[in-house]
Nucleic acid binder design. Structure first.
Lengths: 151, 151
DNA sequence: TAAATATATTTGCAAGTGCAAATTATGGGG
DNA sequence: CCCCATAATTTGCACTTGCAAATATATTTA
């Protein structure tokens, strides 16, 4: 096995670069990377329970609970008891959260466009599709392992 | 912009899944994810200075300094003053580090093979190539920004 | 319908992280 | 030769993170 062909390595370094490239934009808006993940998820998919948001953002649920605490202090989101199941909280964007998201979003889109400037449309579509397929493979694997443990 | 087509989102969730899928294997060997990144890098590319290792693993250099501290305690690596430039340390695998890496490596390879079971060889090659290309795009962007700041 | 069990979220705690300052060492100019 | 600018690494500090236990609510069972 060679490092340059090892998928976790290739994926991780791209992920880290994305973070360091977007961080200056986020700092300017007073938002950290985790909060940004929450903001886009809520903006694109609408209000979510904490658990659903944890799945959607890949942020550990207890970490997420504290991220949401920070975000509430900054008036970015609001947690309201779920009407149907009072064990859950529904997390929703505040007007301020929506506005902050709409400030960052075009800059994030511009960054993505810029760093993929050398990609053809077909390549971009292919990359997205393959990442999606890989995610499915990884998820299936996790589930198999969990089933094994559950007996 | 839709979440399901947003590259940082697609990359991040794949990265997180890789981590959660490999973690049980690493725990069994008493190694954390950061240490594992260092182990593969050293195993594949040979001894490195701390700075080079930071680039190679995408681990922040001050974090890396402490990761290396943990790894030294476990006799996985050794830091020796660089003969040519005494400001640098050269980090190298110990015999134990090599052996631990060789225990984990086949399991990591098997995991990668399993989660990409549905990929054709062409798709796998394409995914690796596109991730490499994306990394280049992201790096160019970082450099442009740094140049701008440096004046 | 009270007890037992299951689910959603938060919290205590010990450990890990990143920034910026400190430390250790190099190399060129006076 | 010593000083100053530069470079590699570590460390102080405040904050973030993840695990496991605690809390709050829902559902099933007897």
């Amino acid at each position: 096995m060679e490092l340059g062909t090892y998928l976790p390595y290739l994926v991780n370094r791209v992920g880290q670069r994305f973070i360091s490239d977007i961080t200056p934009v986020l700092s300017e808006a007073g938002v950290d990377i985790q909060s940004w993940r929450v903001l886009i998820a809520l903006y694109q998919r609408g209000a979510q329970t904490v658990g659903a948001l944890s799945d959607l953002t890949s942020i550990n649920f207890s970490t997420l609970s504290r991220v949401l605490g920070r975000m509430e202090k900054k008036d970015l989101v609001r947690r309201v008891r779920d009407a149907e199941d009072a064990r859950s909280f529904t997390v929703e964007l505040t007007a301020n959260g929506k506005s902050v998201t709409e400030t960052i979003l075009p800059q994030a889109a511009a960054l993505e466009a810029k760093v993929t400037g050398d990609f053809s449309e077909a390549e971009l579509a292919m990359l997205r599709q393959l990442l999606g397929k890989l995610y499915v493979g990884l998820s299936d694997y996790s589930e198999e392992r969990d089933d094994r443990l559950a007996g």
